[in-house]
Amino acid sequence: MRIPFHLKSALVAILLCVCILPARPAQAADIKYKRSVERYNVPDVVLINQDGKKVRLQSLLNSDVPVIVDFIYGTCTTICPVLSAGYVNLQRKLDADSKKVRLISITIDPENDSPKVMKEYLKRFRAKPGWDFLTGSRADIDTVMRAFNAYIPDKMSHYPLNLIRMPKGGSWVRLFGLMSTKEFMNEYLLATAK
């Protein structure tokens, strides 16, 4: 679904107010996730995607297309399905236009998440092309998590995090907490606004 430009700007304006103005307690309770803008140095590692292909993380992320990164694992039954529902809803809303967004999930269970497990996971969520799931060696995955200030020493202490890379300037919007699809879409629009 395309959103008319004037609506988009209005939305961005409202959101900017909500996010930038010091929130009153009543407003703070409305937004249940934490938003910040960060800069990260993407490490030069080669990971493996759901097709078993080697991919260089830097080339995948340093892109003119907005990129969203999250950390999940293939057999997770707690917050990953919620995060992934967010991804799939975003793909639906954007008609899975891969020029509009590139979705990346990075495993936090690299021992178990083989390409086969990741492929089945994406299939289960009816992921469309443009959503890649990456695994790799434990050392490389740890390096990636650390680079995004998202180090999770054990997948059972997992927390919900989405990182949106703004194509302009390459800063990242860090969204900590679970979001509704509407909130996620708004954050995407805000981060990608020209």
Partner: peptide, 9 residues
């Protein structure tokens, strides 16, 4: 929750 971020109360 996480190391870096504190969730809402």
């Amino acid at each position: 929750m996480g190391v870096a971020d504190k969730g809402p109360p």
